[in-house]
Amino acid sequence: MVPSKEDMHDALVLRQGKELTEKFEKTTVAICGLGGLGSNIAISLARAGIGKLILIDFDIVDVTNLHRQQYKASQVGMTKAEAIYENLLEIAPYTTYETHNIKLTEDNIYELLKDADIICEAFDKAEQKAMLNNTVLTTFKDKYLVSASGMAGMDDPNIITTRKITSRFYLCGDGISDVNDNISLVAPRVMLCAAHEAHTVLRIIQNNM
């Protein structure tokens, strides 16, 4: 049986405190890319009781995604936007979700992200990460941006960190482990970096909202 909205709110207050939970519930977070980083960030933030999540990806769930992304074998072939929405509804049914099956470009970033308080960059290609970050940072002076670079391979998990680049721009990852050096991505290390991003979002809300 699915608990009521009130029961789920009360449970969050019990675990996180009233002040923090109420701040989380008032916040809108956009997650750009729903792969290894984005699908994990989305689940963490939905569990924490973020009020609204804007979920954006143009891709389809592929069998090669299942080793690290939060999708099920039965969801292969679905759009990631639809599949993550289905999964999040089972975890946190009272969060507001806005999903977009679309590729983010310089031309649509303003329209798709203008309602977010905090934006998470969760793409996989370096050029796309730079494009999103440059556009967000020069378009929205009042928003916070959390990005990630360097989480591929089997290197030490303890070199993944979060750095504050400017007052509104945070960067997670080890900064160096590129997926293109023939080292692929493994679930725990990507989840670790996603956890850095999600937790940074929660800390931004705690300290600034």
Partner: peptide, 10 residues
């Protein structure tokens, strides 16, 4: 100056 150079993976 900080130059952030991104690598792939996500």
């Amino acid at each position: 100056v900080e130059v952030v150079s991104f690598v792939g993976g996500g």
